[in-house]
């Protein structure tokens, strides 16, 4: 990991298009401003990791149809309530 020190108002440029600026520091909290092209998703790291992990858990491969058939059958049997509209 590259470690740099910055003071409020100073910035770090990533590549040619992304600029991270330290806006202010208050105690142990740093306020960051991010300027990036719209195709670059900017997220708090823990949020990004949580969603990525959930996407990975949800992602299936070729057995998708069979898993869905199986889950749907179980849903119909196991639950007295309907899952649909």
């Amino acid at each position: 990991m590259l470690i740099l020190s910055r003071r409020p108002g100073e910035s770090v440029t990533l590549g040619d298009d992304i600029v991270v600026t330290v806006v202010s520091v208050n105690g142990n909290q740093v306020r960051l401003g991010i300027n990036a092209p719209r195709e670059v998703r900017v997220l708090r790291d823990e949020i990004y990791k949580a969603i990525r992990e959930e996407n990975q858990a949800a992602a299936k491969a070729h057995e998708q149809k069979r898993e869905m058939d199986d889950a749907f059958k179980r849903l119909r049997q196991g639950s007295g309530e309907s899952t649909g509209e």
């Binding site: 949800a58 299936k60 491969a61 998708q64 649909g84």
Partner: peptide, 18 residues
């Protein structure tokens, strides 16, 4: 039967989502 689900199947790699 009818279900409320859909599948999103990736054409670039073996990947799909309910």
């Amino acid at each position: 039967s009818e279900s409320p689900f859909l599948t999103l199947k990736c054409l670039d790699q073996d990947l799909s989502f309910a």
